[in-house]
Amino acid sequence: MKIIAVIPARYEASRFPAKLMQTLGDKTVITTTYRNVLETGLFEEVFVATDSEIIFNEIVGNGGKAVMTGQHETGSDRIAEAVQNIDCDIVINVQGDEPFLKLEPLQQLIEVFREDHNQEISLASLKIRLHDKEEIENPNNVKVITDNNGFALYFSRSVIPFHRETAYEVSYFKHIGVYAFRKHSLIQFSSLEMKPLEIAEKIECIRYLEYGMKIKMIETNFIGVGIDTPEDLEKARQLI
């Protein structure tokens, strides 16, 4: 089973333009992410997929691998174009603005497919338990609910489940945007039309659910620093 990692990266971002080219220590955010993924030793190949010449030149200029793609609505669509002609079985999507992803969660995602002997799982991803009321109600945190076997039932920016029966304790989970795809499922995803729920929520993995594909969710206690704002960048610099 050939496993590769792809880091989708675009230069523009609505909340923090050019965030991937900001510096962390002596490297940019995108180069830090690339190096950290490469150093896990889990992948036969690691590269950045981007529509930005600035990011492309940054990675290649620092000895890394990158491919140019067209413009896309989602990171998954960008990755699908990038891996179209690459021989691989499993594609791990690591967000370019998550520079501190650890080894263990990536290993957990890979193990999902090693144990999926009937090849029923299209996609695996991560979730982390939420405790703070403000974090639970924050629409920037995508929440996920699963069945008894850990398969995603739905993702939402709203609070799910709704805690009507207050005598019963409810657990809330945030979806962490690190994905592991079967290549053929990823290619299929990119050919499918967006449906109303994905459009309404602006959550790309809902497309898989709307077309009846299985998403396995793995609980993790990993807390990284996703860089969405200048304040997040300062937190990351403190970690460095």
Score class of each variant (00 low, 15 high):
Lys127Met: 02
Pro99Phe: 02
Tyr208Trp: 13
Ala13Phe: 12
Asn57Pro: 03
Asp87Ala: 11
Ala5Trp: 00
Glu201Ile: 04
Glu98Ser: 10
Gln188His: 14
Leu153Val: 09
Arg114Ala: 08
Glu231Trp: 01
Val83Glu: 02
Thr166Ile: 14
Phe155Ala: 06
Ala13Asn: 14
Ile86Leu: 12
Ile199Thr: 14
Met1Ile: 10
Asn148His: 13
Met213Cys: 15
Thr32Met: 05
Asn57Tyr: 07
Val37Trp: 07
Lys2Thr: 10
Glu134Ile: 02
Phe43Lys: 02
Lys174Asn: 07
Asn141Ser: 04
Gln84Pro: 00
Gly150Phe: 08
Gln95His: 15
Ile92Val: 12
Asp228Trp: 10
Ser14Ala: 14
Ile30Ser: 02
Ile227Met: 09
Val46Gly: 08
Asn148Tyr: 13
Thr220Arg: 04
Phe155Val: 08
Arg157Ile: 07
Leu186Met: 10
Asp116Gly: 04
Lys235Thr: 11
Leu38Gln: 11
Arg35Met: 12
Ser156Thr: 07
Thr40Met: 06
Tyr11Gly: 08
Gly177Val: 00
Leu192Glu: 13
Leu239Thr: 04
Glu219Thr: 10
Thr33Val: 04
Phe47Lys: 04
Phe222Leu: 08
Lys127Ile: 08
Val48Ile: 06
Glu169Leu: 14
Asn138Lys: 11
Met194His: 13
Thr74Gln: 06
His163Lys: 11
Ile121Gly: 10
Asp228His: 14
Ile59Gly: 02
Asp116Met: 01
Val142Phe: 01
His163Tyr: 07
Glu44Arg: 12
Glu210Phe: 02
His184Pro: 05
Ser185Asp: 13
Asp228Arg: 15
Asp26Asn: 11
Asp232Met: 06
Lys2Arg: 15
Ser14Thr: 12
Lys202Phe: 14
His175Ser: 11
Ala152Ser: 08
Phe100Gly: 02
Ile55Glu: 07
Ser14His: 15
Asp77Cys: 08
Arg114Cys: 06
Val48Met: 01
Pro99Arg: 08
Tyr34Ile: 04
Glu39Ile: 00
Phe162Pro: 08
Tyr34Thr: 00
Glu234Gln: 11
Ala66Gly: 03
Glu73Trp: 14
Glu104Val: 07
Ser125Asp: 08
Asn93Phe: 05
Pro105Asp: 05
Ser52Ala: 09
Tyr34His: 00
Gln22Asn: 09
Thr32His: 01
Ile203Asn: 03
Asp147Phe: 02
Lys127Asn: 02
His72Arg: 03
Arg78Ile: 10
Arg35Lys: 13
Ile206Met: 10
Glu12Trp: 14
Gly226Gln: 12
Gly70Ser: 11
Tyr168Arg: 15
Ile206Trp: 05
Ser185Leu: 04
